[in-house]
């Protein structure tokens, strides 16, 4: 189980690195799909069917919108001015090299701090519940909902769900605002 998920996450990492480096935007978006569908499989393996359904559909709709945006363009990635040519030999220019070194140091430092900070927490497959103990013990009996996630979403934390739906509405109104034809009278 752990090995299987690890393999999928490695694939997701590979997919996302390809996404960020591919020359063609369409293939970038499609390899981004690898990441998304890998996530769906992880959800299924980790016993979260609700999320798997939601994620796969959201993934598809996001891809449709992204492709509709990309289709208006030339689909080519912008050129990265990271290398310079001197007498036919490619050199990475100094500024880029400096960026790469700082970036790498920063990332490794973050990773180190993350590992250092989380080493004492519950390992994979063990989870101490505190707040959700009530949800699991009496949630089904009190709310009457067999699906505990629905019980949490619509009864214990219905206010959260109101916020979530409001975020969607906010984004829709925002998109309608941004895509108006003319801004000023």
């Amino acid at each position: 189980m752990e090995v299987l998920i690890a393999i999928i996450i490695v694939l997701m990492i590979a997919g996302s690195i390809y996404t960020l480096h591919s020359r063609d935007l369409l293939s970038a978006v499609i390899s981004y799909g690898i990441t998304g569908f890998g996530l769906v499989i992880c959800f299924l393996l980790l016993q979260a069917p609700d999320l798997a359904i939601a994620q796969i559909l959201v993934e598809i709709i996001t891809l449709i919108i992204m492709i509709s945006v990309i289709r208006i363009s030339t689909r080519e990635d912008v050129t990265e001015r990271s290398t310079i040519h001197i007498k036919g030999v490619r050199y990475i220019n100094m500024r880029t090299a400096a960026y790469i070194v700082t970036g790498a140091v920063f990332m490794i430092a973050l990773l180190y701090f993350f590992m250092d900070a989380t080493v004492l927490l519950d390992p994979f497959g063990v989870h101490q519940v505190r707040m959700s103990a009530a949800y699991m013990e009496v949630g089904a009996a009190i709310t009457g909902s067999a699906n505990l996630v629905a019980g949490v979403l619509f009864d214990f934390r219905a206010y959260d769900t109101l916020g979530e739906a409001t975020i969607l509405i906010t984004a829709v109104i925002g998109i309608l605002t941004v895509l108006r034809l003319k801004g000023r009278r």
């Binding site: 979260a48 939601a54 505990l148 949490v152 979403l153 979530e164 941004v178």
Partner: peptide
């Protein structure tokens, strides 16, 4: 059971992600 609370949280985060992505794409 696995913990239902993170699942409820992730469902919310998926929606937030969709909303922000769509806004960014509109811009």
């Amino acid at each position: 059971f696995v913990d239902p609370l993170p699942q409820a949280m992730v469902l919310t985060v998926i929606v937030i992600g969709l909303a922000t992505t769509a806004m960014l794409l509109a811009i």
